[in-house]
């Protein structure tokens, strides 16, 4: 299945846009999504941590993603 992932903060720079599309196996989990994204965008892994939100809820690694879900990558932000 194809998942559109919304990008926030520095993830916009890393993805080169406000969203990217990734191909995932059916029944893929949040962990699978992260692995796939980190392979394609190694800089994402370098952040050390970032939040995955599915339907405006913090997604644990084991949660299953479907193609009806809204998925967002929200990295930490340091400015003040």
């Amino acid at each position: 299945m194809e998942i559109t992932v919304l990008a926030f903060g520095i993830a916009k720079d890393i993805f080169g846009g406000a969203s990217v599309t990734v191909a995932l196996a059916d029944n893929a989990t949040t962990a699978d999504l992260k692995t796939s994204l980190e392979e394609k965008y190694p800089r994402l892994k370098h952040l050390a941590s970032y939040m995955v939100a599915v339907n405006n809820e913090y997604a644990e690694d084991g949660g299953v993603i479907t193609d009806r879900d809204e998925v967002a990558i929200i990295p930490p932000v340091s400015g003040g």
Binding site: G9, I10, A48, S49, M51
Partner: peptide, 19 residues
């Protein structure tokens, strides 16, 4: 809980990225 740790060298601050 949100961000267990961060590599600060990878995230631009307001001087670099602007605000």
């Amino acid at each position: 809980d949100l961000f267990p740790q961060v590599d600060a060298t990878q995230i631009p601050n307001c001087t670099e990225g602007g605000v």
